[in-house]
Design a protein around this nucleic acid. Structure first.
Lengths: 303, 303
DNA sequence: CACATCCATAGAGAATTTCTATCAATGGGA
DNA sequence: TCCCATTGATAGAAATTCTCTATGGATGTG
């Protein structure tokens, strides 16, 4: 025979109660049940745990030394069960997310804040990484959720939401382009352009739109970070093109921005998870919350 | 329902094997058994532990985080069972003894040494305390075995062995008492006496014997430790009376000793344990060994 | 010395576990 | 594209284990 958790529980309670009868009451069991359980445990461990007669029940020295060990085990196990049920009930948990820097600094903090108001026990691990790293991290399950630019196809990832992030032109307050109602690619070609680095998803979208319109984008300056592009615009080096969700746009009092009315001149933002895998309940919940939160933002257009 | 150790074991093995079928082989169970056990565990914990289909079995993130926790629990529990069985099999254990200083320094070390040759895994906690403290320590179960002077009566302690430690007279090599074949109390009265302190069990025996012979012992010097009494004899302050088992007697080249041939002029040495209590198996075994070892010594007389 | 209390034992019944047989899904190979 | 081998899931029967009631025996108390 093998040890059994119920036997251990019974041992602990009998030891604490100092009586089989009292322990049986505490455990809502019949007294002979305990007699049998303790005997089994003693047989399994091959030692006597109690010196008992009809008048007294006392731990043997071996039993006395075993008691705290078993107490700790029971306590630890119960704690694990409670913790796990907390996770199941979404009262607790760690959500792991990989996101593009622009989203990580843009829509995500708000979504996290509002989610934590509902589920205060939630922790977050947030990795802001470039383009395809997001996909890698989701595939390798280092993160539960990924927020990436571009559409995703592939049977191993599941798309929770795909929205379009419309491109905006950003220019100094008194720039002539501010007078144009419907900005086209042709309009943009007339001015010096500050563009994002070719390695970024924004630049890919810009180049593609320019090509469709029969142009090739010729930047005056290139920047890897949106903040840098903004600074160049502010310095009068030109105008730039950024996704509408970029936080940087509204932060500058001297700059203005306007959506560019060209079909499909937008970046796809996709929330993904690995398909066929069960996420921690809290992560699942946050995925839904995030999709709802981003889907509801006027900055993004649903496909 | 409550968690079950078998479920936890199954979870760990399935996780390690990455397959229900393989885990079932390892556990010598049928595969459906594992399906049921894992489902039960998942129901109890309220979380999904594996993402499984007919082609692959993979831990969910919650399962992955739970695995090491459960592994440790199983490992700890198994270790406790093995340890306890070692104690049961007398391969390991701590023997706690309280003994009179004279026995602790005399017969006991030999007994411990010979016992440890048989059971190398044995540890000892040895308290050398005076007379009645031994009884207290046995009664309060701070020690498993007690070795005390004097007879013991009382229903709460059990006597494993009682031997008589005959009294010897100790004197300088050229002392006239060396010429007497059968030393009596009257002989002793003729010389200056170095006696043990009245608080010791040795002195109690001496006083009692002198009284029986119609004398009152008049010491020239009194000593609490036998070693001190011996030193005084060596310095020529008188002769002394010590139990025959005292190590100090044979240690001095210039001193001689002889048994005193007076009926009952001896100290009782009693090995006791608390009655009705189960000792650790190793302590029980050492009790037997000690009784045999002391009972076999010519220095002691069986009652 | 009778009584009340407490643990142990025995045997029946209940609950749980484990088994066999079978099904359904899935990926690989012809 | 289709068949087949493999794997986990399901259902129901069998076996085992657990727990209960009834009862016995020991022991300290009044």
């Amino acid at each position: 025979m093998d040890v059994n958790l119920r036997q251990i529980r019974s041992f602990v309670v009998v030891a604490q109660a100092g009586s089989f009868t009292r322990a049986a009451e505490l455990l809502h069991l019949a007294q002979p049940t305990l007699t049998v359980q303790i005997r089994r445990l003693e047989e399994t461990l091959e030692v006597k745990l109690f010196d008992r007669n009809t008048r007294s029940v006392e731990l043997t020295r071996v039993g006395r030394e075993l008691l705290p060990v078993f107490q700790r085990m029971i306590r630890d196990l119960d704690a694990v069960v409670v913790d796990t049920r907390d996770i199941a009930a979404k009262r607790r948990g760690i959500v792991r997310i990989a996101a593009l820097p622009s989203v990580a600094a843009g829509a995500l903090p708000e979504a996290i804040k509002s989610f934590r108001e509902l589920q205060p026990g939630t922790s977050f691990v947030l990795k802001d990484v470039i383009a395809n790293r997001v996909l890698d991290l989701v595939r390798s399950e280092e993160v539960d959720l990924g927020i990436m630019g571009g559409s995703v196809t592939g049977h191993d990832v599941e798309v929770l939401l795909e929205v379009r992030d419309r491109m905006h032109v950003v220019f100094p307050a008194k720039h002539p382009i501010g007078g144009i109602r419907k900005v086209t690619i042709d309009d943009l070609m007339k001015y010096p352009l500050v563009l994002m680095d070719p390695a970024t998803s924004v630049r890919a979208v810009v180049d593609s739109a320019f090509l469709t319109a029969g142009h090739i984008a010729q930047p005056t300056c290139e920047a890897t970070y949106m903040m840098t592009a903004i600074a160049m615009v502010r310095a009068g080096l030109g105008i730039t093109i950024l996704p509408g969700s970029a936080r940087e746009i509204g932060a500058e009092p001297d700059l203005r921005s306007r959506q560019i009315d060209v079909a499909d001149f937008s970046r796809a933002i996709t929330i993904i998870k690995k398909s066929g895998r069960t996420l921690p309940p809290i992560s699942e919940a946050f995925g839904d919350h995030l999709a709802k939160s981003i889907g509801a933002q006027p900055l993004f257009a649903r496909r």
